[in-house]
């Protein structure tokens, strides 16, 4: 018996109404697989993630989720399959909300408008917080957590929705070593549980420790394959358009770029 990949992009392009976008995407991610998405700022990494979420229109090719074709228009629903981890710095630290309440938002899609969280939802939230190691901080105001804790809290929110595909946008930006280690361990557990992961990152350590393959993009897909095959100096220099880059086992140093 064969399983459909969780995500399959075939000749796909995602384009903002203003014209910017990313094209030529051919990619499959199966259950328990993780793929790193690497490229310079403005390469279309976030556009690709938003396109999968249905927030940016797909202007070419096909997108399949769990074997089913998604519509071409930006859709408001991906049938609960996809969860997204934004960068925590985008959120208002003054918003009066606890970590536990943030994680509960991951359950809202399944509840709809009229139902309110019940025992099963609270259990799922507790489990997600436990999984990212923040159960003891559940009642704390979200804005009072450290940057790394907030990022892990948002990961818990994504986990609470029990997705088949998890999208992460630069999850390691600004994290200290302890939070990076915790995030890596959580991602490994998720893979073991069969969750497919697509992560936008500059962190080669994350790519090597967690991901099975790498996609290099800069407006279009430049390379895709196993980490060690794709992350060569030549490929990375081509991707970053002649910018002087340094690369070793753990880091990708790109002058003028954030990240590692």
């Amino acid at each position: 018996m064969t399983h459909s990949p969780v995500l399959r992009l075939t000749g796909a392009a995602f384009t903002h109404p203003g014209g910017a976008g990313v094209a030529g995407l051919d990619l499959e991610i199966g259950r328990g697989e993780a793929v790193a998405l690497i490229g310079p700022n403005g390469a279309g990494k976030s556009t690709l993630l938003k396109g999968i979420l249905g927030l940016v229109p797909r202007t070419a090719g096909t997108l399949e989720l769990g074997g089913a074709r998604a519509s071409e228009r930006p859709s408001h629903s991906r049938n609960g399959m996809v969860a997204f981890l934004p960068q925590s710095a985008e959120l208002d630290a003054d918003f009066p909300i606890s970590l536990e309440q943030v994680v509960m938002q991951g359950r809202y899609r399944g509840l709809g408008l009229l139902r309110w969280p019940g025992r099963a939802d609270r259990a799922a939230v507790a489990q997600a917080l436990d999984r990212v190691g923040l159960a003891q901080l559940a009642k704390r105001p979200f804005g009072e957590l450290s940057g790394g804790q907030r990022q892990r809290g948002l990961l818990a929110r994504a986990l609470a929705s029990q997705p088949a595909l998890l999208l992460l946008d630069e999850p390691f930006n600004g994290l200290d070593q302890a939070n990076r280690d915790a995030l890596v361990e959580t991602l490994r557990q998720l893979k073991a549980d069969g969750v497919a992961v697509l992560v936008s990152t500059h962190d080669l350590e994350l790519a090597r420790l967690v991901c099975d393959s790498v996609v290099l993009v800069n407006g279009t897909q430049l390379a895709h394959g196993p980490v060690d095959d794709v992350l060569t100096l030549g490929n990375v220099q081509e991707c970053f358009e002649g910018v002087e880059v340094e690369i070793d086992e753990h880091t990708l140093v790109v002058p003028g770029h954030e990240g590692h």
Binding site: L53, L55, H76, V82, F84, E90, L91, D92, F95, V102
Partner: peptide, 15 residues
């Protein structure tokens, strides 16, 4: 409240 806290997350969740 979800939208007030995280507009993009709310849209990604299907709202």
């Amino acid at each position: 409240l979800f939208r007030a806290f995280d507009a993009r997350g709310s849209r990604a969740a299907g709202d």
